[in-house]
């Protein structure tokens, strides 16, 4: 089922290469933003350029992976409006699974590879100690980040059952989350930092692990042990958004679109 979807994308090879390139370029321009800020301020939110690069690379990779799989949930409102959701509901496969597999966006690999490149390069440059704990964090952090962003996509998708015309609001937690996660959280105003840690856990994706890996000083309220919070938080978040999604579907069958 999945393989068929992937095949249909690579069929249009020319435009696929263009899309791949566009995704990579998009990721580069986001990086330029980080670069420009640090070009003007040598220390930004308690981090140097190399440390900020670790944050950016890590978050970009995690978001790219999540976007590739879950990015499709952006268009739940379109499926509701066109009635396509009804055709999915009369099939014996969970709705969420059908929506996700409807369009796995291979072109997002463009972003993932740029992120990976910057991540690996900056980790080397920062001379991160490669002990057991360090390696475990380097490998697990992108996966935890992907799970967190994935859950945020599902949460934003669920909200669309209530806000059919206002699907934009969900961007606050998905694309807003990506934006915040790509920057050193020390640069955020306190209320923004608190919101994007305890409500939308974007700062836990990249900033805290990167700071612990590179030995940057953490700002309040972060502690070094929180670098390992990624996976447990992702699990907790998935439990919550799972309920939210079910409530959304129930709302749809209750109200009838």
């Amino acid at each position: 089922m999945l393989s068929a979807r992937l095949r249909s994308q690579v069929v249009y090879r020319g435009s696929f290469a263009g899309d791949l390139l566009a995704q990579a370029l998009l990721s580069v321009t986001e990086f330029v933003e980080v670069y420009v800020l640090l070009h003007n301020a040598p220390v930004f939110g308690g981090m140097t350029l190399v440390q900020a690069c670790v944050v950016y690379g890590l978050s970009s990779m995690a978001f790219g992976l999540a976007d590739m799989v879950f990015g499709q949930l952006d268009t739940v409102n379109v499926a509701i409006r066109t009635g396509q959701l009804e055709t999915l509901l009369v099939r014996p496969v969970p709705l969420l699974l059908q929506l996700i597999t409807a369009d796995v966006q291979l072109r997002r690999l463009g972003r993932v590879s740029t992120g990976l490149l910057i991540y690996v390069w900056s980790l080397c440059y920062a001379q991160v100690p490669l002990d057991g704990a360090g390696l475990a964090l380097i490998v697990s952090a992108p996966l935890a980040g992907m799970l967190i962003f994935g859950a945020l996509f599902v949460a934003a998708g669920s909200l669309q059952f209530w806000l059919i015309d206002g699907a934009q609001a969900g961007n606050t937690i998905t694309y807003g989350g990506r934006y915040v996660a790509s920057m050193p959280a020390g640069a955020l105003l306190l209320p923004v930092r608190v919101f994007f840690t305890f409500v939308v856990p974007a700062t836990l994706v990249a900033y805290v692990p990167a700071a612990v890996l590179t030995g940057a000083e953490l700002v309040w309220p972060f502690q070094p042990a929180m670098a390992w919070l990624g996976l447990p938080v992702a699990v907790l978040l998935w439990a919550v958004v799972g309920l939210l999604w079910r409530a959304g579907v129930r709302r749809y069958t209750g109200a009838g679109g």
Binding site: A4, R7, S8, T87, L89, V90, P92
Partner: peptide
């Protein structure tokens, strides 16, 4: 029992396609 029911019924929506458009 929606998903269990889905195994036992078939629905053709006149206005909407259930087929995969580009395959």
């Amino acid at each position: 029992a929606r998903r269990r029911l889905a195994r036992r019924i078939g629905v053709v929506f006149g206005q909407r396609s259930v087929l995969w458009w580009d395959l």
